[in-house]
């Protein structure tokens, strides 16, 4: 025993530095093992698609696949647009627009105008996945139940969406998401 002091000595420093080095090394080794599970390059490569809207008549709807999820594209009738525009914000369980075209983190009210694109108010584009637990709501095909608000109805746990895809009744916490998309021409959109 040569030293009797409680002061940090050279050995303490070496142990601390050595352990810190090992911890950083272990963390950087683990990272690839965790990261490999995230969406891979081939999945991301399919991240944007183009859809031709020309054959879709007013009142009709089509379903497209985007990132493995169904997209609901509905050419809304004048009555459906008016019904969506007339809804008061305080009648909505979720007052956020949930439109990914807006910058993230920015709060936008869930008016119908904030969920469609200007001059293309009849076109409603939605990610067709119930925000409760991920089922596909009914309302795309002829004869489907469209719920109490004329939009979509999720049969799994009974969520009702209106003609703007906003949640009105049931357990779903959020409005249906509007994906980021642009009109590349009057009858063609690019999603993603």
């Amino acid at each position: 025993m040569t030293t009797e002091t409680d002061e940090a000595d050279r050995r303490d420093f070496l142990v601390l530095a050595g352990n810190a080095f090992a911890a950083v090394g272990a963390a950087s080794l683990i990272w690839p093992f965790v990261q490999q599970m995230n969406p891979d390059a081939s999945t991301k490569a399919l991240a944007s698609i183009e859809v031709d809207l020309a054959p879709v008549k007013p009142g009709q709807a089509i379903t497209a696949m985007w990132r493995g999820k169904p997209l609901f594209i509905r050419n809304r009738t004048k009555e459906e647009v008016e019904a969506a525009q007339k809804v008061q914000l305080n009648d909505l369980p979720d007052t956020e627009a949930r439109n990914e075209s807006f910058p993230p983190g920015k709060s936008m009210p869930a008016t119908d105008a904030n969920r469609v694109q200007k001059d293309h108010e009849n076109w409603l584009v939605l990610v067709g996945i119930c925000t409760h637990l991920g089922c596909i709501p009914k309302g795309q095909s002829i004869g489907d139940s469209r719920g109490d608000f004329g939009g979509w109805f999720c049969p799994c746990h009974g969520s009702h969406y209106d003609t703007s895809g906003r949640i009105r009744k049931g357990p779903a916490p959020r409005n249906l998401d509007v994906p980021p998309f642009v009109f590349v021409s009057d009858t063609k959109i690019k999603i993603g």
Binding site: M37, N38, P39, D40, T43, R67, G68, K69, I129
Partner: peptide, 13 residues
């Protein structure tokens, strides 16, 4: 969820 799925939805991955 996307980390578990390895994509944007449940898939072959």
């Amino acid at each position: 969820v996307e980390w578990l799925w390895g994509g944007y939805s449940v898939s072959g991955v």
